[in-house]
Simulated scan of single mutants.
Amino acid sequence: MHARADLIQAPRAARRYRNLLLDAGFHDVTVEVPTAVFTDATMLPMLSGMAEAAREAGAIAGEQAAAWIADQEERPRSGRTFLALPLFVAAGRRE
Rank of each mutant, 00 (worst) to 15 (best):
D71V: 07
D23P: 14
A70F: 01
R16A: 15
R12E: 10
D71A: 09
L22S: 04
T42N: 09
N19Y: 05
R4C: 14
R12M: 07
Q9R: 13
T42Y: 12
G79N: 04
F82H: 11
G25I: 00
R80L: 11
V33E: 06
A36S: 14
M50R: 04
R15F: 10
H2G: 03
A84T: 13
A65V: 00
A10Q: 12
G25T: 00
A59T: 14
F82S: 08
F26N: 01
L21M: 05
Q9I: 02
D40A: 11
E73T: 11
I69C: 02
P45S: 14
T39A: 15
T35H: 15
F88Y: 13
P76S: 04
E74P: 03
Q9K: 12
L22P: 04
M1G: 12
A66I: 00
L44E: 02
Q9P: 05
H27M: 10
R94A: 06
L44R: 01
T39W: 05
V37Q: 05
P76W: 02
H27L: 07
Y17C: 11
M43E: 11
Q9W: 12
I8Y: 14
F88C: 15
I60D: 00
F26I: 00
F82D: 13
V33S: 05
A70Q: 08
E32Y: 06
G92C: 09
A54I: 13
T39Q: 12
A24G: 11
R55F: 04
Q9E: 14
R4Q: 08
A10H: 07
R80Y: 09
R18Y: 03
M46F: 08
V33C: 04
Q72A: 15
P11L: 07
R16K: 11
Q64H: 08
P76Q: 04
P45C: 11
R15W: 10
L47N: 15
E63N: 06
A65T: 00
T81E: 05
L87V: 15
D23A: 14
P45V: 01
L44N: 10
D40L: 04
Q64I: 07
A61E: 13
M50L: 03
Q72Y: 06
V89R: 08
A84M: 09
A36M: 06
R93W: 12
G62E: 03
R94G: 14
E63F: 06
A67F: 00
G49R: 02
R55L: 06
D28S: 07
G79P: 13
D28R: 04
L47P: 01
A66E: 00
V89D: 12
A66C: 01
A24Y: 01
T35R: 09
L87D: 10
R77T: 08
A36W: 05
A70G: 10
R77H: 13
R55A: 09
I8Q: 10
A54D: 05
L85F: 14
A36E: 10
A13S: 14
T30H: 04
G62L: 03
I60T: 02
A14Y: 05
L44W: 01
A24F: 01
S48K: 02
A53W: 02
A57F: 00
R75P: 01
I60R: 00
S48Y: 03
R94P: 03
L22V: 13
L7P: 11
A41Y: 04
A61I: 08
